[in-house]
């Protein structure tokens, strides 16, 4: 008769341990995403992007249609900067984003996903189309004149710089974070380069207004 209650007691302990660790995990997640941890992470960034409603620039998407900040209002947005001649960081970021969108499932359809080129010289709308076709179909590619790019980068608080490679050609140094805005255009958070999916996807869900 004694083994049975002992087993129940052990099961009770396990259940308690499971509840405690789950509470700790949720607490840690809140602290990092929405709690004091998030404030500290945001404070570390040099500057907070402007609200999208205050931005002013015009670009062309990879299908040749005119686009601007107004196209990012009404839905939550995920914006990142890069260039298509980037062999390492940009494909990795685009692949990470494609994975996050797959994780979000149908919720991803409520999101604008925009890849803005920091290399207008080489990234024509056609070049952007060729490139984004290799990734998740929801990713839009935007490019424009050097002046438009400068305005956009300033509004998003993104930096970029042309750097020549030894004998010929050049590469671009650029901010690699993914920037998240809610549907009203208010800045929500950034996802750093190669941040794990377990952190990135909840950040996107927060920007989507899910709690």
């Amino acid at each position: 008769m004694t083994p049975l209650p002992r087993m129940f007691r052990r099961a009770g302990l396990f259940a308690l341990a499971a509840v405690l660790s789950l509470t700790a995990a949720i607490g840690l997640g809140w602290w990092q995403v929405d709690g004091p941890g998030a404030e500290r992470a945001a404070g570390k960034a040099a500057a907070i992007p402007s609200p999208i409603g205050d931005m002013s620039f015009s670009m062309v998407d990879h299908e040749g249609a005119p686009v601007g900040p107004e196209d990012l209002l009404g839905r939550s947005s995920m914006v990142f900067f890069g260039f298509t001649f980037c062999p390492d960081v940009c494909p990795t970021t685009l692949a990470d984003i494609s994975g996050w969108l797959d994780d979000l499932g149908s919720d991803a359809e409520r999101l604008n996903v925009v890849f803005i080129s920091v290399d207008p010289e080489r990234d024509t709308p056609e070049a952007m189309a060729e490139y984004v076709a290799a990734f998740h179909p929801q990713i839009r590619g935007w490019t424009g004149s050097p002046e438009d790019l400068a305005q956009a980068a300033d509004a998003f608080r993104v930096t970029y710089k042309k750097v020549s490679l030894d004998d010929d050609g050049y590469t671009m140094d650029h901010t690699a974070s993914v920037i998240l805005f809610d549907a009203t255009g208010k800045f929500r958070s950034t996802i750093d380069y190669h941040e794990p999916r377990e952190i990135a996807v909840p950040k996107i869900r927060l920007a989507l207004g899910e709690r």
């Binding site: 040099a46 390492d88 490679l165 590469t171 140094d173 901010t175 690699a176 974070s177 750093d192 380069y193």
Partner: peptide, 26 residues
């Protein structure tokens, strides 16, 4: 460099005795 990714030639890459060097994204 605090969120800004820079790329450039690595120059000669030392493979330490008993160690390993991974070439991987990022």
């Amino acid at each position: 460099d605090s969120g800004v990714m820079r790329m450039g030639p690595a120059g000669p890459v030392e493979i330490p005795a008993g160690g390993e060097v991974s070439l991987a994204p990022g």
